[in-house]
Design a protein around this nucleic acid. Structure first.
Length: 259
DNA sequence: ATGGTCGTCCAACGA
């Protein structure tokens, strides 16, 4: 089973690249972020032609998350689970796909460590931990995948010295990630790829992609029953090249039946 | 040394 996550930075703008990518990467489950689309615009029928069922939580101009699956979609949550303060933005959708409890997340950017949006980001991550604990347990197959807007360690940043005291690398953000790891969610890509310098996002400006100035902020977090089955992981840099790329590359994790 | 691009939609703003 192939899992993937991709921040497409506007599905309308990315439609051709997404079609091309589904053809060659052929994921069984794709978590998508930043569709920047309302629910009535989402092309469920189009993806059905590729063999995918889909769920989407959108708001229009900003945010928007989806799950595409060709192994079924059930038990959908379109916001944080009951009992958790609902989010006003379209940043999370959960569903059970092929026996895996999948959540597609678009974690708030934070903007700056002294910005209210950073406080919102940290609170959002706390609520994400509550959400996961509410809908699943660590002994189940659970995946939380998406744009976390956090580089887990300095191995995931092209120049850590440039990102001290800033969003994406701050101790509080990394502590929030550690909280999820403490619950039982492991960084599936990192377990299979111990070396640093592999990134999933590059600023459009200044030729950052070609200069390898990026960060690994798109993560596939998985419980042990999933992570122990993960046999291969990659970031598809090909999808960041060429005409009209997203500023993020897809992250792929392949599972085998028997560890 | 500075700033450099996209996407949303036409004016800035978010990333």
């Amino acid at each position: 089973m192939r899992l993937a996550t991709w921040n497409v930075n506007s599905l309308n703008a990315r439609m051709e690249r997404v079609d091309e990518w589904l053809d060659y990467a052929s994921p069984d489950i794709l978590c998508m972020q930043e569709t920047k689309m309302s629910d009535d615009q989402f092309p469920h029928d189009h993806f059905a032609q590729f063999g995918y069922e889909s769920v989407h939580v959108g708001e229009g101009q900003w945010n928007g998350v989806a799950i595409l699956s060709r192994v079924g979609i059930d038990q959908v949550h379109t916001n944080f689970a009951p009992g958790i303060e609902p989010d006003g933005e379209a940043r999370l959708v959960s569903a059970t796909c092929g026996g895996v409890k999948v959540t597609s997340v678009y974690v708030p950017n934070g903007r700056a460590v002294d910005d209210d949006h950073y406080v919102y980001k940290l609170g959002w991550l706390d609520r994400l931990a509550d959400h996961v604990d509410s809908i699943a347990s660590p002994d189940e197959m659970v995946v939380v995948a998406g744009d976390f807007n956090i580089a887990p360690t300095d191995l995931d940043v092209y120049d850590p010295a440039k990102f001290t005291e800033s969003t994406h690398t701050s101790p509080a953000e990394r502590a929030a990630l550690a909280e999820l790891e403490g619950w039982g969610l492991a960084d599936a890509f990192r377990r299979l790829q111990p070396e640093g310098g592999l990134y999933s996002w590059w600023d459009y400006r200044a030729g950052d992609f070609h200069q390898h100035r990026g960060m690994r902020i798109d993560l596939v977090l998985a419980t042990e029953p999933v992570a122990s089955r993960a046999a291969f992981a990659t970031i598809d840099r090909q999808a960041r090249k060429g005409e009209k790329p997203s500023d993020h590359a897809p992250v792929i994790v392949d599972l085998v039946d028997h560890p």
